[in-house]
């Protein structure tokens, strides 16, 4: 355990000195500020509406930042050969994978919190209320969402030995699990619907397609919006089926998000454990 923390501490020390990474993470801070400022200039600014917009932006933008901050964590060490120093010590490869996950998660969550502090200041100045029930829940759900992308990014990094393979894997993961999920008309779920329902004539039911959507980190993140927002007040949010099965409930989406943080990491560790270096 102490070795995991040693790796995490030193990795954090190394990566927080990267100016490039701070630049990438600054983007999220800027977008947060812009959204809050834009809604704040309305006649009757409503923080919940701003958070609603921010939620969508987070679904698209936060994975990119999580990936940018994590994809080189292990593959980069193999490409530059710093891994020779790391594994010449009695370091366990599990400590490397978990330690990197901790430090990169901390890094992304840290920049997220900077964004929220900036957003909080804007909210105090421009909005009638901080609406802590809404904004607090959003912060917690965003942190869970960070894990669901840092985990797979570290896993991809652990399973690849060069920068180019790591970036290809991480970009592919982002497109498949985020871009092709969020935009309803042009999504993986839409493609499945076309394949099963219209081409093969299979009647699988709406719950099946909703479940496929909910299985992806971006889909389950969007599904957790029902914790905060009432569909009757937000027409962009489709109404929920009263008798829907548990696997479409928002709480189950949190379970799925946590699984995305952990399961790929285990697979990545398994690949890294068997990898030959040098």
């Amino acid at each position: 355990m102490s070795q995991t923390l040693t790796v995490a501490r030193n990795d954090f020390r190394d990566v927080r000195r990267s100016k490039l990474l701070w630049g990438v993470m600054g983007i999220y801070v800027v977008f947060t500020a812009l959204i809050l400022y834009a809604e704040g200039t309305a006649a009757e600014p409503d923080l919940a509406t701003a958070v609603f917009n921010q939620f969508f932006l987070t679904t698209l933008l936060l994975p990119l930042i999580a990936i940018a901050g994590s994809y080189l964590a292990i593959a980069g060490e193999r490409e530059s050969n710093t891994v020779a120093f790391l594994l010449s010590q009695p370091t366990s490869r599990a400590a490397v994978v978990v330690g990197k996950f901790l430090s990169r998660s901390l890094l992304i969550v840290g920049s997220l919190l900077v964004a929220f502090v900036v957003g909080g200041v804007i909210a105090v100045v421009m909005y009638p209320s901080l609406e802590l029930g809404v904004s607090g829940a959003f912060v917690v759900l965003s942190v869970v969402f960070v894990g669901a992308y840092v985990g797979p990014s570290i896993a991809i990094s652990a399973a690849t030995d060069t920068r180019s393979r790591a970036i290809a894997g991480a970009a592919g993961f982002y497109v498949l699990t985020d871009v092709l999920i969020v935009f309803g008309d042009f999504s993986l779920v839409g493609a499945l619907r076309f394949l099963f329902a219209e081409t093969l004539g299979l009647e699988l039911g709406e719950h099946f397609y909703s479940f496929v959507f909910n299985l992806t980190p971006a889909g389950s993140h969007l599904n957790t919006m029902y914790f905060i927002f009432d569909p009757s007040k937000y027409p962009q949010l489709p109404p929920q089926d009263a008798g829907q099965p548990f696997y479409l409930e928002p709480w189950f989406s949190v379970v799925i998000l946590l699984a995305w943080a952990v399961v790929p990491l285990a697979v990545g560790y398994w690949r890294f454990r068997g990898a030959e270096l040098g």
Partner: peptide, 10 residues
């Protein structure tokens, strides 16, 4: 190790 490479920012 062969071709020792340090962490650039440590």
């Amino acid at each position: 190790p062969e071709a020792f490479s340090p962490y650039e920012r440590l």
